[in-house]
Design a protein around this nucleic acid. Structure first.
Length: 333
DNA sequence: GAGGCAG
DNA sequence: CTGCCTCAACGCATC
DNA sequence: GATGCG
């Protein structure tokens, strides 16, 4: 389960040696221009006044500079890139930090370097994004990181077959009144259902509040098929616990309950990828888990950050890695 | 963060 | 030259 | 048709 290190220790040391204003960084076989390395992109999370550490993430998390972000992306690139190679990537950028306004970036940067893989979306309308970034090497991740791209959302279909998803997704989206224990319960109910269906699936915390379940499938179905399938499964699961799940469309009618969001299964949908940071103070990250970790009392949706994830990755690797490319069929339900 | 454009 | 603007867009439900 | 919602 060990993940390859695509960026060398010497290259990481060279990043740390650059002055705050930046400079040229030789990494992954290219010369990268990096700037404003000591700029804070993710503010610190202050220590909670008294013992009011509201579960999980809690307080007392240090700030994250752009240099920290680049070091993180370089360190996890070996684990992250297999989920991104060969498919378009949507990003969220926050050039002035996650407290300031951010924006979606789908189009490849103007004057993107020639070594950066791009994919032309032939289905794009005239006023829509045509050239998408494909994150298939560390240099691309780092180049986008220098542009303050903090969230990385891979498509669930490949460039080659962009209308045919190769992941089906279940998004457990807690409402305002949903407790973490209820999110865990929903994940376990889905786990039982998926085991019964003889399907292997991956699990990850989003870095914000929720949990996602990723089911690798063979390309061939349409998005409307996987959407209908996930909707059906979630209806079955949700009916077991109607007191904590709502199917209402508007938030007001949902009375604080959780939503099982099957509508993520559409083309060009933005869903955060494994090991992507999230645009929030402290730099939380989305992390893949073993199913056993649902029983870990210390588990929290934002448990790991840019500062703390590399140690976990070195220790336990990526529990979801062996699901990449698994060509499963969705059984009738 | 950086290009495009109005002033 | 400076300052301001932009940087995405699916498909369903409800009004 | 416009807007809410993810």
């Amino acid at each position: 389960m060990a993940t390859p290190m695509l960026v060398t220790d010497a290259e990481l040391a060279a990043l740390d040696d650059l002055p705050g204003r930046g400079g040229r960084w030789a990494v992954d076989g290219v010369e990268l221009s990096v700037t404003n390395l000591d700029k804070v992109l993710f503010p610190a999370v202050p220590v909670a006044p008294v013992e009011a550490s509201a579960g999980g993430g809690g307080g007392g998390r240090p700030e994250v500079t752009k240099r920290d972000l680049l070091r993180y992306l370089a360190t996890v690139s070996g684990a992250m890139i297999p989920y991104f190679a060969g498919r378009p990537c949507n990003m969220v950028r926050h050039p002035n930090g996650t407290d300031e306004h951010g924006f979606w970036a789908k189009a490849a940067p103007k004057n993107a370097p020639g070594w950066m893989t791009q994919w032309p979306n032939e289905d794009a309308a005239k006023d829509e994004t045509r050239w998408y970034v494909v994150v298939d090497r560390p240099a691309t991740l780092l180049s986008m990181g220098n542009l303050a791209a903090v969230e990385y959302h891979p498509w669930t279909s490949s460039c080659a077959r962009s209308q045919e998803p190769d992941w089906a997704l279940i998004d457990l989206d807690p409402g305002p009144d949903t407790t973490w224990d209820q999110v865990i319960l929903l994940a376990k109910l889905h786990q039982t259902a998926l085991e019964h269906l003889d399907l292997r699936a991956g699990l990850k915390v989003t870095g914000k509040r929720g949990i996602q379940i990723w089911i690798p499938i063979e390309a061939g179905l349409a998005f409307s098929d996987t959407l209908a399938w996930v909707e059906k499964l979630s209806l079955m699961v949700g009916q077991l616990v109607p007191d904590i799940v709502s199917w209402a469309w508007t938030k007001a009618d949902r009375s604080g309950k959780a939503r099982l969001d099957y509508t993520q299964n559409i083309r060009n949908k933005t869903l955060v990828g494994p090991f992507s940071p999230r645009a929030a103070s402290g730099g939380p990250v989305s992390v893949t888990l073993t199913w056993d970790e649902l029983d870990d009392a210390d588990l929290a949706p934002d448990r790991w950050t840019i500062h703390t994830l590399p140690a976990r990755l070195a220790e336990v690797g990526d529990p979801m890695a062996d699901l990449i490319g698994l060509q499963q069929q969705l059984p009738a339900i």
